[in-house]
Structures are given as C-alpha cells and as structure tokens.
Design a protein around this nucleic acid. Structure first.
Length: 584
RNA sequence: GGCCCCGUAGCUCAACUGGAUAGAGCGACGGACUUCUAAUCCGUAGGUUGCAGGUUCAAGUCCUGCCGGGGUCACCA
C-alpha cells in the first residue's frame, strides 16, 4: 500500500474489529466516518484519528476511555513509535523513522506512478471541456477551462478512471449561420470583389480569408446566384472543419487534446434529440405551457407570453421549468444538450463532468435536472465552473476591446509565456475563484512565481545528482533502491519525507473532489520543503546532500531527493507541465 | 427581485468533502552568500474567518436570516 494513511487506517480498523469481538464496541458499527489524517499541528504527531469519538455512540465507554483501548492495541505495532490521546478523544500516532525511510524505496520503485490511486476502479468517466463555438480561433478566455479540464482528465486517469475527453461542437446554432455569411463575404472578396468594411454582426477576423479562398476555388461565382439558404448550406461543410482545425491547433499549442468530438448537428440528424425528448415525455415531464416573465425590476421589453414546449426541471431542484422549443417550434439549445448527455450516458458514462465558463453558471441546475431525469437517476453530472481570468501586464489591466475585435487569442498568450507557464498558472486557484494572470510576473524567476519555484526545486535536485555522479560515478535509479535509508535521520530530512509521503493522499482527495488545483498547491509545499532542507546545508554542512568522505550517506540522501524529484515530476505531469532538469 | 459564486492577516490566497492553538506567499522589519544553483532560505510582526443566531463532543466548513462584492436571469449558444 503506497498511501500510508490508508495503510494505517487499515491497521486502526483491525484494532477496532478486535474490540468489537471483545464486545467493547457494538456489532454492526459503521466505520466509514472514521478519518485518519495528518493533524494540522505537526506537534500532535504524524497521524490523527477521530475513531474513538465517532464510535462513541456504539460503545458504553466514553470516547477518551475507548481511545485508551484502541491506543493500547496500536502501541503494539512496531511501526508506531508513540500513541497519545488528546482533547476530546483524538488518537495521535507518531510513526517510527523507518516508516518514512521506507517510503523512499516505494517512490523509487514506482517512479512517476507513485501516488496513483484505485478509487476509480476502472469506472468510465466523461470529462467535457472547452466546447467553444467553432466560429474562430480560441481566445484567452477559453484557456482556463481547457487547462482545468485537461488536468482533471489526467488526474482522474491517475486515480484509475477510464477517462474520455469530450468536446461538444455547437455547430447547429445561429452563430454558425453568421460564420457562414462571414465566410461568403470573404469568398466574394477572394473572387475579386471589393467588400469594404465587414458589416456589423459578421465576424471580422482575418482567419476567414483563407476560408473564402477555399470556397472561391471550390464553388466559384455561380454559388452567389443560388438562394441564401443554399449558399449557407454549401459553406458549412467547408468552414466548420476549417474552424475546428484552427481550434485543434490552438489546443495543441496548449498541450490539450480530446478523444471525442460530438457534433450538435449530428444529434439533430440522427434523431437523438427527438429520442431524448420522447423519453422525457413518456415520464410525463414535458408539457405545453407559458413561462412567467422573470421576476425582477426589468422584464424584457419585448416580452410576450407564448406557449412553448417545457421541461419540468423544477421537479428536480431547478427554479423554474425550462423551454425545450422556442415559440416558433424550433429547438432551443437546451434540447440537444439533453440529448448530448443522454448520449454520453448510453455510451457507458454514468459519471460526467462538464467544465464551463462562469457565464453559464445559471444553467447548472437545469442541466443537472435533465441528466437526473433522462437517466432515471442513474447518471451523475458534476459541473465545474471556471471564473474569469483577469489579464494583467505589470499590475496594469490588459485592455481588450471586443467592439474592435481586439481580443487576445490563446495562441498569443502561449507564444509569449509558454504553455507550461499558462497551464500551471491556470491551476493556481480553485476553479471557481477569479484569477489574475500577469504576463510579466508569470515569467519572473523568483519565489512569488510558483511555476518557477517548483521548476527550480526540480532543477536543483537534478544538479545535485549530476554532481554526486561526477564524484562517485554514474548514478542509476535502480541502484539507489539499495541505499541505506536508515542514514536519513535528521528531523529536517524526515520532514521532507513526510511531505513526499503525503502525495498519494493529495492526489486522491484532488481526484475525489475533482479539483486539480490541489496538485499545484501541493507542489509548492513540496518545493518549499526541499528548498528549506537545501539551505539548511549552509548552516550545517553535515546536512549537505553530498558528503565527499561518506558515499553511503550521500547515496541515501541522493535517493531521498531523487524520490522528491519523482514526485515533483509526477505532480507536474498531472498538470501537463514538463519538469526542467537545468535552469541557468 | 430570483438564483449561483465569493467574503479568512495590510495585499493575493490555502485550509485535506465537520476536527485540536485557522496556515502560506507578497509587503514590512531583522538575519544567512569564497553556493551540493542566494533565481534560495531562516526569524519577527500581523486574526472576533463580513454580522447574528442555530445544528453537535467539535463549525472558516453544514442550516437560517441579514450586510457587502461579482456573475446571471424567456424563445443566445
């Protein structure tokens, strides 16, 4: 068992079963609420369990006495150096140094697989992210969702989920018609016509020029003589794939990829939308009705009550029922969205995660309602909301004028600071908290730049290992396992080992909570722990990693920091960031 | 007005799905470089977790009501 907290939890449960057999604790006791975690205050030991307090209800003994019984049994364990009872009945454990020393070999053997969890148990899970409208290149606002989704997918894979990364292509809405009209204009331009300024309401971007050229080559001027509907229909099969290529290139620059691209239009064409609606109808969840105007100060000026096809989402916790069809009888976007999630469910994903921008937060309830309804409660949808990223340059906000089409593209940001920096920074906040991204600060080589700080720790470790190799001969990871880890004894060293050993637990909690940012925070802690130990070697030369006269000590310490480097690399891998081996 | 998110040190943020004396960084002040990379580290100072109740052995965390900030609000995706 690589997760030592889980390992000792099992030992504690064994003690409790013994007490159940002895009749001290009642049969049928629920052990699930027992926690085994590191105490906030390190002086309380290495691990604390609330077992005696949680089990108090199932025993006649008061919690502190029950804790005493458990403690007596635990103290027989050779790996446990001391057991204390504190406060209302906490049991605090201190582990023997050998437990921490032993973690080094675990890490070295597992390498980057260290910390992997089995909580996913190979269950299928679908993560949908980005899903930007295919009307142009990605702008910077898409970056956060792309990174969060991708890191979440990587994280879940490490927890042994079967992850599918999905992109839902909104290729059926009116924005696609706008795209087609914009492309048609560019086609006329390619045919030699002077089109002047791009009219209001069409996409002005230069990226459509090449689309116009392709259209001109394929169709020529004859297309312009057909009805507009035919023109648009002719343009879409050309323009859409080109836009998707644009988007995929941008995502590629960020190191983000998807397994499945699901087209909204295909859901209409295949009858999947009708099917999911029939399904809801059979459940009696659909009716023709008139929605109330939104309660508030200013109802929409053009409000006209009109009958629509509605879904009873209010039965599932939503604030109101929601329209599936517009008053003219055509679908709302909500209907294909339901079909999309039903489609995922039927492909075997009972667990689904959607990563959305903050402006879509108001749709969570209806979407979750719909998933619950259409899967008869068997499907689960978690929606992660990404708050705004505020772009700064040296503390000054970067101005973006949407009117003039001067938005900053994802590509520009990646080109300026690099994909690793973008990725790491996007994960330095909880997804639902706003984030500042300063072009200058994220490239600083200093403590307050977390990307650099973590990378630097890794580079330093690599540097030490290179130096040790020059002194004692080439160092291979396989040989390090044979080092005498019992030479790792100083509290500062053990402290680093404790931080390293916390990784499996961090990974698991990040996976359970769908919060990849926890990995980024952990890596800063780990880097800090390493940098501290490094500097301690200045005050106390006996704690330097390399001691020329003592090869065995050096090798033990090299093993220790090698395992630290593995964990840094492993954590960075979840974030999709490559570790640096040298920084000069 | 309804709903959602947020409110924690001067600033930016953590707090392991309810745990013990709420933690880091920045800024401020004071220290450590003939370096295993000082691009770093150590120390000091800094708090009624917006307010008021409730739930229990235990609340920053859950519930209710206020205050303040942001987002969003029929047929746009």
């Amino acid at each position: 068992m690589m997760n030592i907290f889980a390992a000792f939890r099992a030992r504690i449960e064994t003690c409790i079963r013994t007490l159940i057999q002895e009749g001290v604790i009642g049969e049928g006791t629920d052990l699930s609420r027992i926690s085994v975690e590191p105490p906030r205050d390190p002086s309380h030991g290495d691990m604390a369990t609330n077992a005696a307090m949680v089990l108090g209800k199932f025993s006649e003994l008061p919690p502190r006495d029950l804790a005493g019984k458990i403690a007596d049994l635990l103290s027989k364990d050779a790996d446990i150096a001391s057991v204390d009872i504190a406060g209302p009945g906490f049991i605090n454990l201190s582990l023997s140094p050998s437990v921490w020393q032993g973690q080094i070999a675990h890490v070295l053997k597992a390498g980057k697989a260290y910390g992997n969890s089995d909580i996913g148990a190979e269950k299928k899970i679908n993560v949908e992210y980005v899903s930007a409208n295919p009307t142009g290149p990605m702008h910077v606002g898409h970056a956060r969702g792309a990174v969060v989704g991708d890191a979440l997918a990587r994280l879940l894979e490490r927890a042994n989920y079967q992850v599918t990364r999905e992109y839902y292509i909104n290729d059926a809405g009116s924005q696609i018609d706008t795209l087609a009209r914009s492309a048609l204009l560019r086609m006329r331009e390619a045919l030699g016509e002077d089109i002047g300024d791009i009219p209001e309401g069409l996409y002005p971007g230069d990226y459509l020029v090449s689309v116009g050229q392709v259209l001109a080559e394929k169709y020529g001027a004859s297309l312009m003589e057909k009805p507009e509907a035919d023109q648009i229909a002719a343009v879409k099969p050309i323009a859409l794939p080109m836009m998707m290529e644009l988007i995929k290139d941008d995502l590629d620059a960020l190191g983000v990829r998807h397994d499945v691209f699901l087209s909204e239009q295909s859901l209409h064409d295949s009858g999947a939308v009708d099917k999911s609606l029939v399904r809801l109808d059979e459940m009696g969840l659909i009716y023709e009705g008139v929605l109330e105007p939104p309660k508030g100060k200013t109802p929409p000026p053009d409000w006209e009550p009109s009958p629509q096809t509605l879904f009873k989402s209010s039965q599932f916790g939503d604030d109101s029922d929601r329209a599936l069809k517009k008053s003219d009888g055509s679908w709302t976007y909500f209907a294909p969205d339901i079909a999309c999630h039903l489609d995922k469910f039927e492909r075997g994903y009972a667990q689904m995660i959607d990563v959305w921008g903050a402006d879509h937060a108001g749709y969570i309830k209806r979407m979750k309602s719909a998933v619950t309804a259409v899967t008869a409660g068997a499907g689960d949808l978690d929606v992660k909301i990404c708050q705004m990223v505020k772009l700064m340059r040296n503390g000054e906000p970067v101005k973006m004028s949407k009117r003039a089409g001067q938005f900053i593209t994802l590509r520009e940001v990646v080109d300026e600071v690099g994909k690793d920096v973008v990725r790491f920074m996007m994960l330095t906040r909880k997804n639902d908290a706003p984030l500042e991204f300063d072009f200058v600060k994220v490239q600083e080589q200093s403590r307050d730049n977390p990307v650099f700080y973590v990378q630097y720790a890794h580079a330093r470790i690599c540097s030490v290992i290179r130096n040790a190799g020059e002194m004692f001969g080439a160092i291979h990871d396989d040989d390090l396992t044979d080092s005498d880890m019992s030479l790792i004894v100083d509290p500062a060293e053990i402290s680093l080992l404790k931080t390293i050993s916390a990784f499996p637990r961090v990974l698991e909690s990040a996976a359970v909570n769908h919060e990849p940012h926890r990995i980024a925070f952990y890596l800063q802690d780990l880097a800090s722990s390493f940098h501290s130990l490094w500097n301690l070697g200045k005050e106390r030369p006996d704690l330097k990693f390399i001691i020329e006269e003592q090869k065995n000590v050096t090798m033990a310490r090299v093993s220790m920091i090698r395992s630290c480097a593995f964990v840094i690399a492993s954590g960075l891998d979840i974030l999709g960031v490559r570790p640096e081996e040298e920084m000069r």
